[in-house]
Design a protein around this nucleic acid. Structure first.
Lengths: 327, 327
DNA sequence: ATGAAAGCGCTAACAT
DNA sequence: ATGTTAGCGCTTTCAT
């Protein structure tokens, strides 16, 4: 930076200002500084800057998984919006483990981030302890919570389950079931199930059908859970899958067995993964605001960085029922 | 850190050593230091450490996309292996654009990373200029290259294309075609096509069939490219898709049109995405070493961090033909 | 609007 | 094996 200062004939402080706070520098000097930066290809040392400012233009983001395209889409959108403003994402995956989340959060804080973004509203006690009292924005996303740390941006998974049940009823189905995978570790999938079962109870006054397997959601798991479900409840005429991958596996299973969809069994899933729109039959689903969450988080943070007074919001982005041929 | 030092009754240097280089500190003092750290919940400030050492335990990784599960799997594996050793990944997505890759690389270098990992062996001139001469390991992955920057870890996409063609010939197919999407921006897809066409030319001495659409690979794109391919070449009895998503879209299109797979048309793809093993028919594919690449990169870097003399390797991880019902 | 000066919290020679 | 010391390259008061 002192090289740049010398080249531009100014002091290092002016170079720093021209970079961090351009309006505070006169047009003439700013032009000189920018020319010198251009000429030399100077890139500031973020360590020095971070140390001096005791804050870096970094946002720590923890998601359960990146292989799950839900979160990959959210992270990409967030990065797309934040990078033009000079903020870098530090991304970590917790594998749905609160302990790993805590370890990651601790590790991220050593980077002096400008904000932290977590998935969901349920965290280990140690995570909470580390996070409260920090004077940076904390965002919990993909889920709506009452006793949130700071700001929550997402939608109601209970409502997703309720709407799925209602949709199947509207399609004339009377024996409908929930099929899920690994809902013990995925609180949001668990909430979708709760909403679904609530709606069934409220409408039919009979105990709702639900089958869940312990393994993680996948196309294979979908075939397994559906096969078991049919064995236990051959009478069902509709099903809500906690996830589109499960539904696809079930649909393949139907093709193999000659079960017609939706005639014999109507299906709806969650996620709107891209194959659902092009399969045969096309799969009904509920679309979560994947990219929208990332963009909303980024916009919220950008606002907070400029106006530290805000915070503590609950932003409900909703979701979209996408009825297609399978229901 | 000086608090810890005081608490443990040692100097700050000893605390620093106990953290960075534990063997250099006596057991007694190390225990005291660790106890003090435990007690206070001390987390070192990475900015200060990075500034002093002019290097951070950070690895910059640039992939085309995270929504593409190929790279998400590689990144997750790399992080899994590197994190226990105290290295943090900084991940960026280039969207297949060399210019964005260059911008990301520049930005990452300001974090003083211990290593940089790029996807592919083709980069903007500016990227190369920035990277050569740095005394950190540079790894190019997912592709094998001759004039690599430093170390390359991946496999031959040309060989993938060749094996796909050979496989279709072995299955008795004679009029086989390549179907691809956006191969202009995806050099690896382009290489798979080249390998395929080479093999066809070598075996049949006739001009090979290939159809490519400009849009990005997706299930939808698969239906589109396959429909157009059939219109132009109704005589084909086998196809290699540059990507499993395309193949799935084509399979759905066949189901809609009543074309039987593999009887009328044999299909093989690339990627081994999870639905291929459970669809009906199950989809033949070529499996790239997704996680293996991430692990191999991590292991290579760990080796290099301890022994800076190494480097310049070419590590071919190969790939696996997975014949299933569609061919 | 600009410059001078004092650190930010560590690491790594160097000395012991 | 441990302590002393001198920065690392910026940001940010403070003074002008």
């Amino acid at each position: 930076m002192s090289d740049i200062a010398q080249l531009a004939g100014v002091s290092a402080s002016t170079v720093s200002r021209a970079l961090r706070n351009p309006e505070a520098v006169s047009d003439a000097l700013r032009a000189k500084v920018n020319a010198a930066i251009e000429q030399t290809g100077y890139v500031p040392n973020r360590m020095a800057g971070g140390l001096a400012a005791s804050r870096t233009r970094t946002v720590g983001v923890i998601v359960p998984s990146l292989i799950n395209t839900f979160f990959a889409a959210t992270v990409e959108a967030m990065a797309d919006r934040l990078e033009p403003h000079g903020y870098q994402l530090m991304v970590g995956t917790s594998g749905y483990s609160p302990e790993r989340e805590e370890a990651l959060a601790t590790s991220f804080l050593s980077w002096l981030p400008s904000a932290m973004v977590l998935t969901g509203t349920h965290h280990a006690r140690g995570t909470l302890k580390r996070l409260v009292g920090l004077d940076i924005p904390i965002v919990e996303m993909w889920e709506l919570g009452d006793n949130a740390l700071d700001t929550t941006i997402g939608f109601s998974h209970r409502d997703v389950g309720r709407e799925a049940a209602q949709h199947l009823f509207e399609r004339g189905r009377r024996r409908i079931a929930f099929a899920g995978a690994a809902i013990d570790e995925d609180r949001r999938a668990w909430q979708r199930r709760e909403g679904f079962l609530d709606a069934v109870r409220a409408t039919q006054h009979q105990s709702p059908i639900s089958h869940v397997i312990p393994q993680r959601a996948s196309v294979e798991a979908g075939a397994v859970v559906f096969r078991e479900l049919l064995e236990m409840h051959p009478e069902i005429d509709g099903a809500f899958f906690s996830n589109d991958a499960l539904m696809l596996g079930a649909m393949f299973e139907c093709q193999r067995r000659g079960i017609t969809v939706p005639q014999q069994i109507a299906m709806i899933g969650f996620g709107d993964l891209d194959y659902g729109a092009w399969s045969s039959p096309r799969l009904s689903t509920i679309r979560p605001p994947r990219r929208e969450i990332g963009l909303a988080v980024a916009d919220h943070l950008l606002k907070r960085f400029n106006d530290s007074s805000a915070g503590g919001e609950v932003i409900d982005l909703g979701f979209q029922l996408v009825p297609r041929e399978s229901s």
